[in-house]
Nucleic acid binder design. Structure first.
Lengths: 131, 131
DNA sequence: TGTTTGTTATATTACATATATAACATATAT
DNA sequence: ATATATGTTATATATGTAATATAACAAACA
């Protein structure tokens, strides 16, 4: 799986990494049970620090997307992905709210905003680059 | 206009403030030309520092949502709101992408995600509380 | 003249990000 | 047993952001 980090971005490296791994799982490129590179290995490949990768892995572990086994290494959650919890719904709505307000104030219509959402979602599932 | 800040949130205060002002404009509660409280006044009312309010106002000024006149004070952009620029589209897509991936990986269907987006958008426009 | 406005400057505190080393405990392979 | 590679934990450091606290400035208005 190809991962690209933008050092200039205002999004933290560990967040970028976690996001891209999440996309990989969502698209099916990474399947349940698939092994991920070791912390040190991935850090080496990406040219970043061990702890930054560790932070991203742990974030996804907290969310239930990864399992981290001592010595066995890190694998994609094989026992079923987490569902849409109340907490997740609330968080999603909160973040969507910020985006929707910015879109609405610029005159982007409701249907266009919804269509953008649908389009972006599909883009991830069909494993396209993004544009 | 009622503004509520969550000191426990991981979202910075100036971001929360800018978001809520944006929602106010999007919903029509704040109309073009409407005056906003002075920096010091709002800071006092919210119980936060002058510079935090200033940062929020300047952010919205940069985005073209506010006009800041010396002594006249701060008003909602009267000369037409900014449109949907390429840059905004790109930024919106980037942020939606992260949300869509998190939703998809938890099994939220494309239509449900789009419906959530539409629902949240409508919530803002119709000026409801949020839940 | 005095007050209020946004603006700018400095300083301080706290926290997050990212890095650099180092060491530890454990499971696997040799 | 020995070596190796794994995730984990602990320090330390540098940098940047967020938020606060004062203070002063220039300009507009009553």
């Amino acid at each position: 799986m190809f991962i690209e980090l933008d050092l200039q971005s205002d999004t933290p490296l560990y967040t970028q990494l976690a996001d891209q791994l999440t996309e990989g799982i969502a698209s099916g490129e990474l399947k349940p049970g698939d092994p991920l590179p070791s912390i040190r290995r991935l850090a080496e490949d990406l040219g970043i620090n061990l702890h930054t990768v560790n932070k991203a892995y742990n974030l996804l572990k907290q969310e239930g997307l990864l399992q981290v086994h001592r010595k066995t290494g890190v694998i994609v959650q094989p026992d079923g992905m987490p569902g849409v919890t109340e907490a997740f719904e609330a968080k999603l709505r909160r973040q969507l709210r910020s985006l929707a307000a910015a879109a609405a104030v610029r005159g982007m219509a409701e249907e266009v905003f919804a269509q953008e959402s649908k389009s972006v979602y599909r883009d991830i599932i069909t494993n396209r680059g993004g544009e």
